[in-house]
Simulated assay, not measured.
Amino acid sequence: MGTEAVDDVDPIGDEELYERLKTYEGRPTAAPGIGKDPVNEPMIRHWCEAMGDTNPAYTGPDGIAPPTMLQAWTMGGLSGYAERSGAYDELSALLDSVGCTSIVATDCEQEYLRPLRPGDRITFDSVIESVSPRKTTKLGAGHFITTRMDIRVDGEPVGTHRFRVLKYAPPKAGSASRRQNESHPSRRPSPVINRDNAGFWDGVEEHRLLIQRCADCAELRFPWLPGCGGCGSPRWEAVEASGGGTVYSYVVMHHPPFPAFDPPYAVGLIELAEGVRMVGNVVGVPCDEVRIGMRVRLDFIKADEAQELPVFRPLVDAATAAGVV
Rank of each mutant, 00 (worst) to 15 (best):
E237N: 07
V276C: 09
P264H: 12
T246E: 13
M253Q: 12
Y250R: 12
F261E: 00
Y250Q: 09
H254F: 12
P257F: 08
P257W: 10
V267Y: 01
P257G: 03
I270Y: 07
R235K: 13
A266D: 05
V252C: 12
M278A: 04
A241I: 03
M253I: 15
H255K: 14
L272S: 12
V252S: 08
G275L: 07
V267L: 15
V252Y: 09
Y248D: 14
P234N: 07
E274P: 01
C231F: 02
M278G: 08
S249L: 08
S249T: 14
F258C: 06
M278T: 05
C231N: 01
A260R: 09
A260P: 00
G245M: 09
V239C: 03
H255R: 15
V239Q: 01
G230K: 14
E274Y: 01
V247H: 01
G229T: 06
F261N: 01
G244L: 15
S233Q: 11
G245T: 03
F258T: 13
A241G: 12
E274I: 02
C228V: 02
V251T: 15
S249W: 01
V239D: 00
V276K: 13
A266V: 03
G268I: 01
G243Q: 07
M253W: 14
G245H: 05
E237Q: 12
V267A: 06
V252N: 12
F258D: 02
E271I: 03
G243F: 05
S249K: 05
W236D: 06
P264L: 13
P264M: 11
G268R: 06
A241D: 15
G243E: 04
V276P: 11
V276A: 04
R277V: 00
V267S: 05
H254I: 13
R235H: 07
E240Q: 15
A260G: 00
L269H: 06
G275M: 06
S249C: 02
S233M: 12
Y250M: 09
L272D: 07
F261M: 10
P259H: 05
P264K: 15
A260L: 09
V276T: 14
Y265A: 12
A260M: 04
F261H: 05
W236Y: 15
L269I: 14
G245R: 05
G245E: 01
G229P: 03
R235I: 00
V251D: 02
R235A: 11
G243Y: 05
E240W: 06
E274G: 04
Y265I: 04
R235D: 13
E240I: 08
G244P: 07
V276R: 10
A266Q: 08
V247Y: 00
H254Y: 15
E240R: 14
C228D: 01
E240Y: 04
G275W: 04
G275Y: 03
V252L: 13
Y250L: 11
T246P: 00
A260Y: 02
D262R: 15
P263Q: 13
G229H: 11
C228H: 04
G229K: 13
M253R: 14
E237Y: 01
E240A: 14
E237S: 11
G243D: 08
T246L: 06
P234S: 10
V252D: 02
P259S: 07
C231L: 06
Y250N: 08
V251N: 08
